[in-house]
Computed example of a mutant assay.
Amino acid sequence: MSGKVARLGHVGIAVEDIDRSVAFYTEVLGMRLTEMFRYDESTVGHGSAVLAGAFVRGWEDTIHHRLSIFTLRDANPEKPSARSLGLHHIAFEMDSSDDLLTLYRRFKEREVPIVNARIGGPGNQPRFYGLDPDGNLLEFYYKIDHVGWDGIPRPYPAIQEIELEDFDFEAYDEQREKQAEAERARRLQTQPSS
């Protein structure tokens, strides 16, 4: 099929204070600033609504940006809310459970608001949610489930809150693999024989 989307490229957010947000995303989350500039006031493109933009990427990422951060020309933009239409949250994948815990602890040390930590539900990934300086909901996760060759997601438990500091990642991984094996065996038994 032509014209299909290959992958999500980046997310753009509007913030109140671009310097504060760049500091948060680079100093707290460890992302890298690619570039930042002011837009000329124009009647086309971003310049008609956006005053300045900053473009950040992952630490080892060579893609120009994964997140676009903008300040708007309108001095009174509406604040985001988890119960409003538009952007709901931005999710960031971590390379390891240690990275997830390190970031969780950094949020606590810097008194960055943490909403909660969870397992279960679609994707079944250990994760925590926090807020950026403008109240945007952010998710940080490790080891999200992959869809199998049959295109069917494997079963998952209901969403439940956890204390990430006490969470046993290794036991959780073992449990997930056992559940996946049991589901594979069940599907093989229920498949009609040729």
Rank of each mutant, 00 (worst) to 15 (best):
L101G: 03
N116A: 13
Y141C: 05
P80C: 13
I159L: 13
W149D: 04
F169H: 01
E163M: 03
L100V: 01
P126N: 04
D132C: 06
R110L: 15
P157Y: 01
P155R: 00
K108H: 07
L188I: 04
E111S: 14
Y104F: 15
F167H: 06
G130D: 01
A75D: 11
A82Y: 02
P153R: 04
A75F: 02
E170F: 09
D145P: 02
F92H: 06
D98E: 15
R184A: 07
A117N: 10
P113D: 02
P113H: 08
E165M: 09
G86P: 07
H146C: 01
L164Q: 12
D166V: 05
R154W: 05
Y142N: 06
A117M: 10
A117R: 09
I152L: 11
R83L: 15
V147C: 10
Y141V: 00
P80Y: 12
P77S: 12
K178Y: 01
L101F: 00
H89M: 03
L131E: 13
Q179T: 09
D95L: 04
P153K: 03
P157D: 10
V115W: 06
N116M: 08
E93T: 14
E78L: 10
R186W: 11
D74H: 09
R154Q: 02
P157W: 03
I162V: 15
E93F: 02
L137Y: 10
E181Q: 13
F107E: 00
E181G: 03
E170Q: 14
D95W: 02
R127D: 00
D95M: 00
R184L: 06
R73E: 08
P80G: 14
F107R: 03
A171P: 11
E139Q: 10
F140H: 14
E111W: 02
I144C: 02
R73A: 07
D74G: 06
R105P: 09
I114Q: 11
E183A: 12
E161Y: 06
L85N: 05
G121D: 10
F167Y: 07
Y104P: 03
V112L: 05
F140Q: 04
R118A: 14
L138N: 08
E111F: 01
R184Q: 09
D168F: 06
F169T: 03
I114C: 10
F169C: 00
